[in-house]
Amino acid sequence: MAALSLLSVRPATPADEAELAELDRSTWSSLHAVVPPPVPPYEPFFGEWHPPEEFLVAEAAESAESAGGAPRVAGYLRLAPATPLASNAHVRQIRGLAVANWARGAGAGRLLLRAAFDEARRQGANRITLRVLAHNEPARALYASEGFAVEGVFPGEFFLNGRYVDDVCMGRSLDPA
């Protein structure tokens, strides 16, 4: 793996659609997905229920030895209101996080989470939640290391690869510590 230097996290734009769609397809895994692998014809990545405004994009530059060191998408995170209810407007929910296989271990996931905390605060939220499959230990460890705690479990919520898998609800405060 080439050495990576993370440059930034930025809001997604409609122009990111093709690259994010390809990243989403290339990172599909039963470790985190509850739907079958995508097959052509592919659904659009952005849509009415998942607009570009809900996505943050991590960009990385490869080392000077690689192809020009131009920034490329290393990952994305989808951050959305938890519900459309006014009584729940103070909560944001992470509804997707993907890191390119070539960028794993370089801190893109952590960078995206921290950017999501800042963006959620900017939007007026004071709490952030997510759901993760119980067997996704790497993701659960990352979330725990960033202050998320298990707040509930839906036992056997999904039947994946011939076995029942728990759905774990995690959350954390966005108030300054």
Rank of each mutant, 00 (worst) to 15 (best):
A134L: 01
T129E: 15
E43T: 13
A177R: 12
R92H: 11
R95Y: 06
G75S: 06
A15D: 12
A18W: 08
S29F: 07
R72G: 09
A89H: 12
R10S: 09
A108M: 03
S8N: 11
P41S: 07
V39L: 08
R95F: 00
D167F: 01
V153T: 15
F148P: 05
E53S: 15
V91C: 12
H32G: 14
C169M: 14
G109R: 12
L133N: 02
L20F: 10
E137L: 13
L113P: 03
P81D: 09
L112K: 06
D16M: 01
Q123P: 00
V73K: 04
F55S: 02
L20K: 06
M170H: 08
A18S: 14
W102T: 10
N161M: 07
A125G: 12
S66I: 02
S173W: 06
G109H: 12
A177I: 02
L160K: 05
A134R: 06
Y42V: 02
G171V: 10
Y143K: 04
G107W: 10
R172M: 13
W102P: 00
P40M: 05
A100S: 14
A115I: 01
E53P: 00
I94T: 02
A61T: 09
S26G: 06
P155T: 06
F46M: 09
S5G: 04
R92D: 08
R163K: 15
F117Y: 04
A98D: 06
R104T: 14
R78H: 04
Q93I: 00
A139N: 08
P37E: 09
E17A: 15
R122I: 08
R122N: 02
A67G: 15
N88H: 15
A149V: 15
S145M: 03
F154Y: 13
A12C: 04
I128D: 02
A15T: 07
S63K: 02
F154V: 09
Y42H: 15
E53M: 02
N88A: 15
W28Y: 09
A70S: 11
S66C: 11
S5H: 13
T13F: 01
R110F: 01
E62Q: 13
P84L: 08
P138F: 12
A144W: 03
N126H: 15
Y42A: 07
T83V: 05
A100K: 03
S145P: 04
S145Q: 11
A74G: 09
E151I: 08
P84W: 05
V168C: 08
V35Q: 13
P14K: 02
S29W: 03
G147M: 08
T129G: 00
E22P: 00
R131C: 08
A141R: 15
E137F: 00
L23R: 04
N101A: 14
F158D: 01
A3E: 10
A61M: 10
R114M: 08
A108C: 15
W28G: 01
W28R: 02
Y42L: 14
R121K: 13
R25M: 05
S26T: 12
N101M: 00
A134M: 02
Y164M: 11
A15R: 10
E22D: 14
A18G: 05
R10H: 10
G107Y: 13
S87V: 14
G68R: 11
L130Q: 04
P44H: 01
N126Y: 11
G156P: 03
A120Q: 07
D167Q: 07
V39T: 11
P44M: 03
R78E: 14
S26D: 13
L133K: 06
